[in-house]
Structures are given as structure tokens and as C-alpha cells.
Write a protein that binds this DNA or RNA. Structure first.
Length: 805
DNA sequence: CATCGTACTTAGAAGCTGACCA
DNA sequence: TGGTCAGCTTCTAAGTACGATG
């Protein structure tokens, strides 16, 4: 199917699934071994126990506190001091804190208290040695040597003991396991094997110089040459050489329904324009927005402009939108006409490769649903017309025809320094743009995703030094430097967002640099209580123990200010990032979030995975995922039916327990030679041996336990959103490596039942798998459904996760 | 340097779909 | 045979980052 179409390079074919073109070049060659080849070989690393601590001791520390830490060879001894310091483990922090603070903030419930304690000891004060800090140079404090590869370790240290040992450990460990594929240039084997897969076809790239062979089949379309591997990678540079797409699709025009609203009880005639906006409001009746005063006020102001000053409708509260609402419900019931699929808009061809477009539909008009207390909530978001849209397309590509007769695009550009295919100004906030770009499964996005994780992983090699630097600066004379130090510390330890400045016409939320005095309370002797609204107006509440010097510095920053003043009055994100860049090229505040999330995942998986069946292992993964989500403060609102669901489960458990009683009863009777009682359902019960009863009892108990666990999990996760961290923060290579080490299927296959009640769980959902595939095979994700993950050629460093890299 | 403009990532919720169940 | 719910996908809001500007 699609294949053919694809061949021609036109994107119009529309079929989704088959992806035709595959990129041959792998962007990075570092690792290209086909997954399959590696998959089942077992890696030496299988043993979880081998955790090593690298610089990350720190990491461990915290975590370990919760979990059993593994002890290394002796190393540990030293760890107390040094280790902690470094490790900002967020987790720990959070946890600890949690307890305490929990009290007040209501909503935050989400963050559950971690069990363990806080790190109390974070004595982190780093050692003086720190001095090295001065810039990047210093960085090398500890590097781990990886076995074969090039990286050497240098442990410098004074503190060292910890480190040293670690290093040693690493060496030894590693040596023992040798990983052939040490990270740097692995030789890649040609991916041929994979290539063979029937479905993939490669576009031939023109003879670009660098490109290697693989020409294989030529597509007709070779007209879209593929750029040589200079894909979009980093930033700053050329993002594509050829770009072909079909523009965007517009929502259907409004069709007046003629249903009248009531004003003071009387039907009112509205023009189609007035009716359209009234309908937008009417259909929101069951949402929380509907009753929010600001939402109503903003809506009213905009609607009134359409009604005109002298319209008979003078007051929103006197309007009864019920007729429209009822009409809307009826419409919903009817089978709605299938909306246009937009096949032809779904694909773009970038450098000869067919790629999915992420959002080719122009946003329909509606009422703005801002999160939190957004000043513009309820305002009318106007319809976007072709004349609002700027397209970006290859110079030689045909310019998409404007789908609305008689209208035209605002502008057509040919800018290959950007990745967007089209944009328009957001009608709510004209200073912002809405971009149309490729989907997450595209090579472009995959490449930048990988770059992101590489940057985070690289931070591992510098974190010691960074921590030493900020620790030293906790007492800097210069306030500005002291604020940078403390802010960096908070970002490192708590995974806070940078905190850019915001306009007044946006919701009032903050990040690290924009924290207000009132958001941070000092709790003697050295705890800080945070309470603020972050991105999306999600509340962050956490009480954590901090370094005494940090505690003191925060006290100084707060002194003499009112609650609404900036805590870090001398700081903003550009200063902070400029400083971070001095320490490590390319480093910015957000990298710490990625780093913290991924290192936590890696450490937890290594420490917590035990022998057991797949389900038990998956629980470990979910637990780690949950920890990461908590660190990142990813919350979700409790579903409306949550309470009922829990109750239903509780009811079932009760039933099972009743059944258990019956079983036990019958066991007794069987032992005494009596026949079983009739079941509560009135059915006759077979007479069986006591052993058989015991077996049934055991099964019943397992069932009960499982259901209780499930209920507990559900309750625990009711406010925790796992998806965001999985998609954006956890390096998928860590997941893949763990799956391979522990023989856990990577994809979820909830349908595969091996026994009643027993599902085989994989680890990861479609999106995460798609991202993993992306690192090599950008197109496969869309066609994934037709082939199994394990046979997919994934070029990953699967046997080396962060701790070993 | 402070602002502004631009581009790209990260986020929670809404919406959809198909399996499963009373 | 409709109701539920898990698991996705889609949608679009809301962040980060950084270069240009004055």
C-alpha cells in the first residue's frame, strides 16, 4: 500500500502505515548494532547488583537511603561524607520533606511523602577541594573510566575515597564485563540485517559525499535527496535540504443550527456569528470553566462585542443556554460526520524521507481555556484564516494550494534553518506563535531528543565540579554570585524549572529564578518549605532540609523584602544559564531536570530489581517511574470516577474474602470427611480432597493480594502522572538496557494473557517505544504495529546505561 | 543590559477506541 | 448491548532558551 505511493515521493499518498523511506544513514554511528543482535545476548551487566557509583554517589546516596544501597567494595566507608554531598538526589529530598510539609497544602497531595527520610545527612557541604571549580577545566574531577573506551578516569580527589573506590570499582567491574560496544565508535555493523527487512526501503541519497553506501533501492523520487547526515542535530544549523509538504488543513466553517437561547426566559434571535460564540460557551456547561467568574467575564466581553452595545442581551447571567446545550447533546449522540481525515496533509518529505507531520490541523476557533488563573481565560480565540498563515517549504517544492478558495497564504518562506512547516500568530497572545512541525516520531525530533539526553548524560561528568562550585559560592561576597549558587543548588537538588520572567497577561506562576519571598519559608534549623504554583499552575509543595549555608543565604535573600518580592532579585535565567555555560558548554538549567530524572531511573532500576517474574519487575519499573514523576512534580487531576472505582475494587476484595471463608470452611469439613456446603451462589460444590481445597485457598489468597496491591497502586498514582517523565525525561536507552538485562518485554502487550488473571506486561507504551526507535529508525514507529520490537533494528548502546557510560 | 522576537520542548486534559464485563 | 476503563492519541497551553535590537 503505501509503499508505492511513497515511492514517488509525494506525500499525498496517505497511507500511514507503511513507511517507505528509511534513512540509511544513521546519524550517529555510535551505536548501531541491531537490536536483535544484541538483544538476547546477555549482557554481563545483568546483575543489578553491580551498581556502581560514580560520581554519582550522590545519587546513590539519597536514593540509597531509601533503598538498600549496595555496597561496593569497601568504598562506602567514605561515602558518608562525600557522597551525600553531591548527590542531590532529589528524591530524597523530596521525600524527606514531604513528611513534614504535607500538612498545609491541600492540593499538593499529589506528592506523596516519600517514605524515607530525608537525607538528613546531606552534609553536603562539599569539600573544600572544590576550589577547582573555576571553570570547565576543573571539571574533570572524577571521571569514570570506562573500560575500553577512551574515557579515562581521573579521580582527583581528595575526597575521594569515595571516588576512588568508585573508580576502581568501575574499572574492575567494567573490565569484567566488557562491553564491546563501548560507546564511542562502535563499529557499526551494517545495519543490513535490519535493512533487509522488507518494509524498509531506503531512499537513495544522492551521492552525497559522506554518505556511505547503502544505496540500495532507488526511489523514484530520488529527487528528494537526502542530506547527508547532517541532520538537524544540534541547533543552529541547517535543518533540512529539501522539504515538501501539503500545507495545513482548516477546520470546517461554522454551520448555524438556529437553536435559540433564552434571555430572561424569552427566545432570542442571534446572527450566525453571535450564535457561533454562544455555542462555544453553551457547550462548556459541564466544565469547571463555565462557572468561573473570570471566564464568564472574559467571554461576555468578547461576545458582547459581537452582540453590540444595544443588543437586548445585556447581562450574561440572564442568558439561558440550555437549548443550545441540549442541541449539542443530541448532536453528540448522532453519529457525527467523520471529520476530514486529512491524509494528504499528514505527511511531509524531508530530505527524501517521508515523515509524519505532528499537527497539520489549524486550531479551530473557541474559547481560550487557560490553565490556572489565566487573565485571558474565556476570551474568544478567533478563527485562523489562510491569510494568517506563513508556510515554510523547500524552494523547489510545489507551493501547497490554499485550501480555501479565493484566499491565500500570508507568506511562503524557504528557511531551512528552522524546522517548522507553518505558523500563525496565536490570536490570544499575538506575541506568540503556533507552529506546525513534524511529529515526535520524526527523525528531526528523534535526533534532538537524543541530543538532549546526551547533554544530560554529559552533565554526569561535570556534576561534581558544578556542585563544588556552587557550594563554594554559597558564601560569595557578591550577592549576585551567591544567588546564582543557591539557585543552581535548588535546581540541582529539587529539579526546579529555570523560571523565566512572565508577562502580566499570563497566569502568575514561577520557577526557580522567579520565586517570590512568599514561596519559600525558612523552617529552623535548616529546612526550607516551598509552596508555589509552577508550570500549568501545578502547585509545588515541598519541605526539604538544605545545607546550612543555603538556609542562611535564603534567609539573607528574604530579609527586608515583602512576600511578593523576588527572592532572587539579582538573578534571571539568562544570567543563570550564562554561568552554567561557563562551567560546561551547552549546559542550561533544564538539563538538570533531565539529568536528575534519568539518573534516578537508572539508579533505582539497578538497585531495586530483584529476581522474580516479569510482573514483579515491571512493578519495579513503575515504581522508579513514579519516583521520577514525583521529582519532576508531574501531577494529574484525580479522575472523576476514581472514588467509585476504588470502591468497586474494595467491594470485589470483600467478595473474594467471603469466598475465602467458604473455602476454608469447606477445607475443615473435608478434613472431617464432611461434604462441602452449598456455595453462596446456591450452586452445588464438588466434593474434593483437603489438598485440593488448600490449593484453592492459596489461589484465592493470591488473587486477593493482587487485587489489594492493584488498589493500592491505583490510589498511590491517582495524582501522579507517569507519562510526562516517560516521554520527556527518562532516557529510553536506560529502559531498553534494563529490559534486556532482565528479559522484560519492552512493549506493552496487555492482550497477551498467559493465564487468567495474569497478563504479560511489557514496560513501555507506544510513545516511549517510538522514541527509542527514533534514535535509529525514525520511521519505524509508525509502522511498528506491523513488526515486533525485538526484531527491530535499534541501534542503541543497550548494555551500557548511564552509570556505566 | 533590558526587551523583544523566535523557535522549539514540555504539559495536562480532552477525546477516542477497543477490550472486557455485567 | 450498553457501560467502563485502560491506554493511547490529539490538542494546545505554557514553559525554556537564545539571538537580535536599541
Amino acid at each position: 500500500m503505501a509503499t508505492e505511493a511513497a515511492h514517488d515521493g509525494h506525500s499525498d499518498d496517505g497511507d500511514d502505515k507503511p513507511i517507505v523511506f528509511k534513512r540509511s544513514d544513521n546519524g550517529d554511528s555510535e551505536d548501531d548494532r541491531p537490536l536483535s543482535s544484541i538483544f538476547f545476548k546477555n549482557s554481563p551487566l545483568d546483575r543489578p547488583s553491580e551498581i556502581i557509583k560514580d560520581e554519582s554517589d550522590d545519587d546513590e546516596a539519597p536514593i540509597s537511603s531509601r533503598f538498600r544501597k549496595k555496597k561496593g567494595n569497601g568504598v562506602s566507608g567514605s561515602k558518608q561524607d562525600s557522597t551525600d554531598e553531591n548527590k542531590p538526589l532529589v528524591n530524597k529530598w523530596q521525600n524527606g520533606s514531604t513528611h513534614e510539609n504535607e500538612g498545609p497544602s491541600p492540593k499538593v497531595s499529589g506528592k506523596r511523602p516519600l517514605e524515607k527520610g530525608s537525607s538528613a545527612d546531606q552534609s553536603s557541604v562539599k569539600k573544600p577541594k572544590v576550589s577547582s571549580s573555576s571553570t570547565s577545566v576543573a571539571m574533570k574531577s572524577l571521571k569514570i573510566v570506562k573500560q575500553g573506551d577512551k574515557r579515562k578516569v581521573e579521580v582527583d580527589h581528595e575526597d575521594d575515597d569515595d571516588d576512588v573506590p568508585i573508580a576502581k570499582r568501575m574499572n574492575s567491574d567494567s573490565s569484567k564485563y566488557k562491553t564491546p560496544s563501548a560507546k564511542p565508535k562502535v563499529v557499526k555493523q551494517s545495519s543490513t540485517s535490519s535493512a533487509t527487512k522488507s518494509k524498509m526501503k531506503r531512499v537513495v541519497s544522492p551521492p552525497s559525499k559522506t554518505r556511505s553506501k547503502k544505496s540500495k533501492k532507488l526511489m523514484n523520487e530520488s529527487k528528494f535527496a537526502k542530506s547527508s547526515k547532517t541532520l538537524p542535530t544540534g541547533d543552529g544549523k541547517k535543518k533540512w535540504t529539501t522539504l515538501v509538504h501539503n500545507g495545513v488543513i482548516f477546520p470546517p466553517l461554522y454551520k448555524p443550527h438556529g437553536v435559540q437561547i433564552l434571555y430572561k426566559g424569552k427566545p432570542v434571535n442571534l446572527t450566525p456569528e453571535q450564535e457561533e460564540v454562544a455555542t462555544m460557551f453553551a457547550v462548556m456547561r459541564e466544565t469547571d470553566f463555565y462557572n468561573k467568574p473570570l471566564f464568564r467575564e472574559n467571554f461576555w466581553n468578547d461576545w458582547r462585542k459581537l452582540l453590540g452595545k444595544n443588543h437586548e442581551i445585556q447581562k450574561l447571567d440572564d442568558c439561558d443556554f440550555t437549548p443550545i446545550y441540549d442541541w449539542h447533546l443530541e448532536e453528540k449522540k448522532k453519529k457525527k460526520a467523520p471529520r476530514e481525515k486529512g491524509e494528504k496533509y499528514m505527511w511531509a518529505v524531508v530530505d527524501g524521507v517521508k515523515e509524519k507531520v505532528g499537527n497539520f490541523r489549524v486550531e479551530p476557533p473557541g474559547l481560550f481555556r487557560g490553565r490556572g488563573e489565566h487573565p485571558k481565560t474565556g476570551k474568544l480565540k478567533k478563527r485562523i484564516h489562510p491569510c494568517d498563515i506563513t508556510l515554510n517549504i523547500g524552494k523547489d517544492a510545489p507551493i501547497p494550494e490554499c485550501p480555501i478558495p479565493g484566499e491565500r497564504w500570508k507568506e511562503v518562506k524557504h528557511d531551512n534553518m528552522v524546522t517548522w512547516l507553518a505558523f500563525w500568530n496565536d490570536p490570544i497572545n499575538p506575541k506568540r506563535f503556533k507552529y506546525v512541525s513534524l511529529s515526535a516520531s520524526s527523525s528531526q525530533k528523534g535526533q534532538s531528543d537524543k541530543n538532549k539526553y546526551e547533554k544530560a548524560r554529559n552533565l554526569k561528568d561535570h556534576i561534581e565540579n558544578i556542585r563544588a562550585t556552587y557550594t563554594k559560592n554559597f558564601t560569595a561576597k557578591d550577592v549576585s554570585n551567591r544567588q546564582i549558587a543557591v539557585a543552581t543548588y535548588l535546581i540541582d537538588k529539587l529539579a526546579l524549572r529555570a523560571g523565566n520572567e512572565k508577562d502580566d497577561d499570563e497566569a502568575d506562576t514561577v520557577g526557580c529564578c522567579t520565586l517570590k519571598v512568599g514561596n519559600v519559608e525558612c523552617v529552623p534549623p535548616n529546612k526550607l518549605k516551598f509552596d508555589f504554583l509552577g508550570k500549568d499552575s501545578i502547585q509545588y509543595v515541598n519541605t526539604v532540609e538544605v545545607e546550612p549555608l543555603v538556609y542562611k543565604a535564603i534567609g539573607q535573600f528574604r530579609a527586608g523584602k515583602s512576600n511578593s518580592d523576588d527572592l532572587f532579585d539579582e538573578l534571571d535565567t539568562s544570567k543563570l544559564n550564562a554561568h552554567l555555560k561557563e562551567l560546561v558548554p551547552g549546559l542550561t538549567a533544564k538539563v538538570f531536570r533531565t539529568y536528575n530524572a534519568s539518573i534516578t531511573l537508572d539508579v533505582m532500576l539497578r538497585q531495586e530489581t530483584r529476581e522474580g517474574d516479569v510482573n514483579q519487575k515491571v512493578v519495579v519499573y513503575q515504581q522508579a517511574n513514579k519516583e521520577v514523576a514525583i521529582i519532576c512534580n508531574h501531577q494529574r487531576t484525580v479522575s472523576k470516577s476514581h472514588g467509585a472505582q476504588i470502591q468497586r475494587l474494595a467491594g470485589k476484595i470483600e467478595e473474594l474474602k467471603e469466598g475465602l471463608k467458604e473455602l476454608k470452611n469447606n477445607l475443615e469439613r473435608a478434613i472431617k470427611g464432611k461434604s462441602p456446603l452449598e456455595g453462596s451462589d446456591g450452586k452445588k460444590t464438588r466434593n474434593i480432597t483437603p489438598e485440593a481445597w488448600e490449593k484453592k485457598i492459596a489461589q484465592q489468597m493470591m488473587k486477593i493480594e493482587k487485587m489489594e496491591r492493584d488498589m493500592q497502586t491505583k490510589e498511590d498514582l491517582k495524582t501522579v502522572a507517569l507519562g510526562t517523565s516517560k516521554i520527556n525525561y527518562m532516557d529510553p536507552r536506560i529502559t531498553v538496557a534494563w529490559c534486556k538485562r532482565h528479559e522484560v518485554p519492552i512493549e506493552k502487550r496487555s492482550k497477551a494473557k498467559i493465564a487468567p488473571d495474569q497478563k504479560i506486561w511489557g514496560l513501555v507504551d507506544t510513545d516511549h517505544c517510538a522514541r527509542i526507535r527514533l534514535y535509529d529508525d525514525p520511521l519505524s514507529s509508525s509502522s511498528s504495529s506491523s513488526r515486533s520490537f525485538n526484531s527491530n533494528p535499534i541501534y542503541l548502546i543497550w548494555d551500557q546505561t548511564w552509570l556505566f557510560l
